[in-house]
Design a protein around this nucleic acid. Sequence first.
DNA 1: GAGCCTTTGAAGTGC
DNA 2: GCACTTCAAAGGCTC
Length: 563
Amino acid sequence: AGGGDDLGANDELIPFQDEGGEEQEPSSDSASAQRDLDEVKSSLVNESENQSSSSDSEAERRPQPARDAFQKPRDYFAEVRRPQDGAFFKGPPYPGYPFLMIPDLSSPYLSNGPLSPGGARTYLQMKWPLLDVPSSATVKDTRSPSPAHLSNKVPVVQPPHHMHPLTPLITYSNDHFSPGSPPTHLSPEIDPKTGIPRPPHPAELSPYYPLSPGAVGQIPHPLGWLVPQQGQPMYSLPPGGFRHPYPALAMNASMSSLVSSRFSPHMVAPAHPGLPTSGIPHPAIVSPIVKQEPAPPSLSPAVSAKSPVTVKKEEEKKPHVKKPLNAFMLYMKEMRAKVVAECTLKESAAINQILGRKWHNLSREEQAKYYELARKERQLHSQLYPTWSARDNYGKKKKRKREKQLSQTQSQQQVQEAEGALASKSKKPCVQYLPPEKSCDSPASSHGSMLDSPATPSAALASPAAPAATHSEQAQPLSLTTKPESRAQLALHSAAFLSAKATATSSGQMGSQPPLLSRPLPLGSLPTALLTSPPSFPAALHAHQALPVLQAQPLSLVTKSAH
DNA sequence: GAGCCTTTGAAGTGC
DNA sequence: GCACTTCAAAGGCTC
C-alpha cells in the first residue's frame, strides 16, 4: 500500500509550470512520472537511436527558461521561487520538495535505528511552520503520513495542503536563493575555502526552521500533525523533552526517529547546544550522553583515562551517523520505486544504472532541485550533528571492498598500459552487471551502448596535443566518477573515442557532435577530462559563473545522443 | 551474514 | 590542487 500511496500522493502534485504555462517536465506529476518511466522503458527496450531521439525531442520540449535555469542563476532562482506566486503555483517544484525527509522509524542518518536498519527515509511534505495551520486539518487528512506511509520504504510525498508548500522550508529571498545557492561548494552558506557549510547562522536557518529557539518550547511541535501511531500521539514530548538526537530517545521508536532525525531542537539551536539558553525548551535537550559530540579529551579526564579498549567500545556503541544524501541519492530514493515498478528488475545495481541514466536525462532545472535539496540536507545534517564529519565514517566499512577496488585499480592500470594495443584490437566487452536476459536492459549497460559510447581517455585529453575540453564540456554538471572500474571502462573504450574524436575535434564542441554521442553516454564512461570539472557543475556555477558555458552546452547535448 | 554490485555526489585522504 | 578513496541507498546475489 505504501508504494502505491506515495505515487498517489504524487498524483496530487500538479505540474510545475512555467509562466508560459508550458509544462516543465515535473517529475512530481503522475503523467510526467509516467513519461519518465516510459522514457526509461523505451530507453531500456529500444535501440539507443530511438531512445536518443526521444530524449532529444523531450529536450526540445523543454522550455528555454528551464534550460536556462542553470545558465542564469538568477533566472533559476526565479524559477524556483515562482511557486510562491499564487497565480502560478500549483505545487511544489518537484516531488517532495519542500518536504521533510523523515526517516522510517529511525533517523535517516543513523544506521542502527531500532526498527529500520535501513534507515529508509520517508519524505513528507514539510509542514513547518505550522503555527498557522490547524493541526486537525492535517491530522484529519487521510493523506497525512499514516503508519502505513511511515512504515513503507517508498518515499512519501506529502502533497501541499492549506498552506504554501514552499513556505516551510524556504523564504526564497534573494539572499537565500542567491546564485550560489543551488549547488553546494561556493554557496553563500558554504565556506568557500573549506566547502563546509558555515556554522549555523540563525538568520540563514530561519528560512528553514523559522522557529526561534525560544518558540520551540512554547508552541506545538510541528510534528503534532502526524497521525498517532498505535494509540500514541505521534508527537508527545517525553518528560525530558528532546533529550537526545539519537534513537535512544525515551519515546517510542517512531517518535524518536521522527523527532530526533529532523525535528530535534538540536537543529534549531545547534550551534551551542550546551548553552543553557532559554530558547531551548528543555535544558536537557543537550544531553550529556550526546554521542554526536565526543567530549574533548582535555575536558573529560574520565574519557581520557579510559583504556583504548574502553574507548573503542564506546565508539562501537556510538550511533553511526550516516552521511547526508547527495542529490543523486535523493533522486534515487525518490525514483527507485517507480523504476522498480516499471521494470522486472529488482537488483539495485541494475536499477541504479537506470537511475543513473535517468539522472543524466533530467533537465538542469530538475537536477537543480535535487542539488538544492541535497544542500539543505547537508545543512540540516550539519545542524543535527555539528561535529560530525564524513571522516567519522571513513574507513568504517569492511576492507573487503576496498581491497577489491585496489586490485581493480591495479588491473585498471594494466588495462591502461595495454590501452594502445587495445585501440587496434577488438574491444573487450564491458562487464555488464545488468543481466542481458532481463526484460529491462539498461541502455547504459548494453554491450552496444558501452562500446559505441565515445569514452574519452582522460590521458588523451590531458595530453597537450589533445585539444582541451571545451568550456561547455568542463562545465557539465556531471562529475565523473573516478572509480577504478569506470576508469577501466574508459580505457577500454578509449580507442573508440579516439577514433571518433579525430572527426569531432574540429569544431571544438564535442558535446554536440553526433558522431561522438550516438548513444547516451554510459555514466561510467564519461571521460574524466571532459567532465571532471571540480567542483562540478554546481560549483562551476558558483565559482565561475559559467553561465555562458552552460548556456552553450546544455546537459542534454552531452548526455544524450545528438542528431 | 558480510560483502559485492551499480550509480552520482560529497568529502576525506594522501601526495 | 589534484587524484584517488570512501560512503551514502537499494536489494538481489555470491561466498
